[in-house]
């Protein structure tokens, strides 16, 4: 089912959690809401679910106004960061809950409920845990049960609030791939909230980057990574080198020295130069836009990460670059750096 959010405003006291947010989610999409804590992503999710109410704006699920209905009537599956499993019920009863509380007129008979719960437990590959209690499960198992429970009501949309936030790194990675393949299987429109960019880029079809109650950019994982729309997105997604520069016409200067790179249409004045660590080409001294002395090199896997103290800054500006290991860099070496890809954004304030 498609979801449409229009002009949502939500304030907590004087703090604007959501500031005029618009969002369209297509049917069957797997969308990530990505942002730092306090960016409003969870509030937006809770408003769509009906667990919070906006001060103004509209929410439509499948074309019909969702705000006129309470959370219990929206048929929205919600998965909480801390699972929120019913601690006094077995896994089986947790999953069956949504079916058992249906109005008598549409409630299914016991055999149908049992069969459906069994199917869902099979789907999350935890049928052998049916008679355990939540406290006897690991974090990853709990979250999968929480997902099965949310799917039991045949939700029109599935909302996941930091679903892997409380899990350790290894389980997180497994569950990510698992969620991805589960979505391919059941195709329910899903939105998940995360502050972990890697998670968002790896799992979602589309990523919505949020900051301070506003949407900064919406795009495919490739788009938000390769073509960040704002300085915030560039800084938040992927590791970036940020240098304060001055733009005058098409010339870019760092500490008063010209960098010999085009300004790419950035407005004149104070600006910030953003370069990905791996987009900084290392060459022999005197051949690039920047020059500096390597202070320290760490090599791991396919890359070597070098700390470079830029020349002309009295060694105060130190940047970290990732270089391929075709030529080993040495501490103390003077190198030149040339940004292969970069973006220049006007400095805020």
């Amino acid at each position: 089912m498609a979801i449409e959010v229009k002009n949502i405003v939500k304030r907590f006291g004087s703090f604007a959690a959501l500031d005029n947010v618009d969002l369209k989610v297509a049917d069957g999409e797997l969308l990530a809401l990505l942002g730092p804590s306090g960016s409003g992503k969870t509030t937006l999710l809770r408003i769509i679910a009906g667990l919070d109410w906006p001060d103004s704006g509209e929410v439509a699920i499948d074309g019909e106004n969702a705000l006129s209905r309470g959370a219990s009537e929206r048929q929205v599956g919600f998965v909480f960061q801390h699972y929120a499993l019913f601690r006094h019920m077995t896994v089986f009863e947790n999953v069956a809950f949504g079916l058992r509380v249906q109005p008598r007129a549409i409630r299914k008979d016991e055999a149908t409920i049992r069969a459906r719960v069994k199917n869902l437990l099979d789907l999350v590959q935890l049928d052998w845990l049916a008679n355990r209690y939540p406290s006897q499960l690991s974090g990853g198992q709990r979250q999968r049960i929480a997902l099965a429970r949310a799917l039991a009501i045949e939700p029109r949309i599935l909302l996941l609030d930091e679903p892997f936030g409380a899990l350790d790194a290894k389980v997180r990675k497994e569950l990510r791939q698992w969620l991805r393949s589960l979505h391919n299987e059941i195709h329910v429109t899903s939105i998940f909230v995360t502050h972990d960019q890697e998670e968002a880029l790896e799992v979602a079809n589309r990523v919505v980057v949020m900051d301070k109650g506003k949407i900064e950019q919406i795009g495919s994982p490739g788009e938000v990574y390769d073509n960040p729309a704002t300085a915030f997105v560039h800084g938040f997604i992927g590791e970036s080198i940020v240098l304060p520069v001055d733009v005058a016409g098409d010339a870019v200067r760092l500490d008063g020295r010209p960098l010999n790179i085009p300004a790419l249409g950035a407005a004149s004045g104070a600006a910030k130069l953003f370069v990905r660590r791996h987009d900084m080409a290392v060459g022999p001294a005197g051949t690039g836009a920047l020059e500096g002395a390597i202070r320290h090199v760490r090599s791991f896997g396919p890359i070597q990460r070098a700390e470079v103290a830029l020349a002309g800054s009295e060694g105060r500006t130190v940047i970290e670059i990732d270089a391929p290991r075709d030529r080993e860099l040495q501490a103390g070496e003077i190198v030149s750096l040339q940004p292969r890809r970069y973006r220049i954004f006007a400095a805020q304030e």
């Binding site: 959370a71 219990s72 919600f78 909480f80 019913f86 949504g98 509380v101 949310a150 009501i153």
Partner: peptide, 8 residues
């Protein structure tokens, strides 16, 4: 909240 979102 979980119970309510499940339709209770």
């Amino acid at each position: 909240e979980a119970a309510i979102s499940l339709g209770a």
